[in-house]
């Protein structure tokens, strides 16, 4: 095999790896243990837009929402003690570094500036997962977290404090290689 052939082989292998690594990025993932269930899924801009449009949201609001990456999160506490959701303890990263989540204060300020009706602001808020919640045994809740739209897969490291005083052993889970869903 000549050096030229070797270079071609290496090129093909790298291209193949890159191709499959993109293919293997996921729009859905699930963590399951005897203490906790966490499911995440990203939603295509089209379906996000359709949901809010059906609630009467104005076009200017929909145009903005379509430009973001919606991650639906479902959490169920299967343990016999408190488990805390605290989004400040969730770390989102991708190849470019840390990703800043757009929290409810960001959206509140945005909608107020745009003079969005209170009813729509309220519905929007209720579709977000709480920033903090003490999950009682067997409690389940869901909602969205919102990120800037990313063209690279991202990772979520979510840490859940435990026990009423948050002093129990924390549960840390990882979701890797998640991608923002695209329209089909």
């Amino acid at each position: 095999m000549t050096n030229k052939h070797k270079i071609y082989y290496v090129f093909y292998i790298i291209s193949g790896l890159l191709f499959f690594s993109n293919l293997s990025a996921m729009t859905k993932a699930q963590y399951e243990s005897n203490l906790l269930t966490v499911k995440i899924s990203t939603n295509a801009p089209q379906s996000i837009s359709a949901f809010y449009e059906a609630r009467g949201f104005q076009k200017k609001m929909l145009d903005i929402l379509r430009q973001h990456c919606f991650v639906s999160v479902f959490i169920r506490n299967k343990s016999k003690d408190f488990i805390w959701l605290d989004l400040s303890q969730w770390k989102l990263t991708n190849a470019d570094g840390e990703i800043t989540r757009l929290d409810r204060n960001y959206w509140k300020a945005k909608w107020q500036t745009m003079d969005i009706p209170l009813a729509h602001q309220s519905i929007f808020r209720w579709t977000l997962i709480p920033e903090q919640l003490d999950f009682h045994p067997n409690e389940r809740e869901g909602g969205n977290i919102i990120l800037p739209r990313l063209d690279k897969p991202f990772n979520i490291t979510a840490t859940f404090p435990t026990k009423a005083d948050k002093q129990g052993s924390p549960i840390t889970i990882n979701f890797n290689n998640i991608e923002c869903a695209n329209n089909k």
Binding site: P117, L118, A119, Q121, S122, I123, R125, W126, P130, L133, E139, E141, G142, G143
Partner: peptide, 13 residues
């Protein structure tokens, strides 16, 4: 109508 009473009650969800 504006969701303001719900806001004051602060439901968990």
């Amino acid at each position: 109508i504006n969701g303001q009473v719900t806001e004051v009650w602060k439901p968990r969800g």
